[in-house]
C-alpha cells in the first residue's frame, strides 16, 4: 500500500539528484496538445506514456507539458518536441506505441522519427 511515508522517501531520493530546476530549464520539452479535440483523439494515454518513459529512464533534463488546441484537430493527438538549438518537431496521430520509439530514437539518440511527423503525413 502506498503511504505518505513512502512518498517522503521518494522525495529524498529526488531532491538528491543534481539541480533539478536548472536541468529542466536547459533541457528538452515534450508538449502534448490537451484540448477537447486532443483528449477525444487519445492524448491522455499518450501523455501518460511519455511520463512513464521519462520516469523509467530517469531523464532528468526532459519536461513533459501540455498545451491547448493548435488548430489541426484532424491530426490529433499532436506532440511537439523542442530541443535546445534544434527546430521544433511536430508529431501527429500519436499513440502509445509511437511514444516508445520517439523517446528512444529522438529524445535519447537525437534522430527525429521522420515518418511520424506532420510533414510526412501531409505529403
Amino acid at each position: 500500500m502506498k503511504s505518505l511515508a513512502e512518498l517522503q522517501q521518494l522525495r529524498d531520493k529526488i531532491s538528491k539528484q543534481v539541480d533539478l530546476r536548472k536541468d529542466r530549464e536547459n533541457g528538452i520539452r515534450i508538449v502534448v496538445g490537451m484540448a477537447t479535440c486532443g483528449i477525444a483523439a487519445g492524448a491522455r494515454p499518450v501523455m501518460n506514456a511519455f511520463l512513464n518513459e521519462v520516469s523509467k529512464r530517469g531523464l532528468s533534463d526532459v519536461t513533459v507539458t501540455q498545451t491547448g488546441c493548435i488548430g489541426m484537430c484532424r491530426l490529433e493527438p499532436i506532440v511537439e518536441v523542442f530541443m535546445p538549438g534544434e527546430e521544433k518537431v511536430t508529431y501527429v496521430h500519436m499513440n502509445e506505441e509511437k511514444v516508445a520509439r520517439i523517446v528512444a530514437e529522438h529524445i535519447i539518440n537525437k534522430q527525429p522519427v521522420a515518418e511520424y511527423t506532420v510533414g510526412a503525413v501531409q505529403e
Partner: peptide, 24 residues
Amino acid sequence: DDIKNALGGVPIDSPEILNWVKEY
C-alpha cells in the same frame, strides 16, 4: 495539497512523483 506538503520543495509535477500519485 497534502501531497505537496509531504513533498517539501520537490515539485509535484516531477515524472517520478506523478507516477507515484497515479499508483496511489
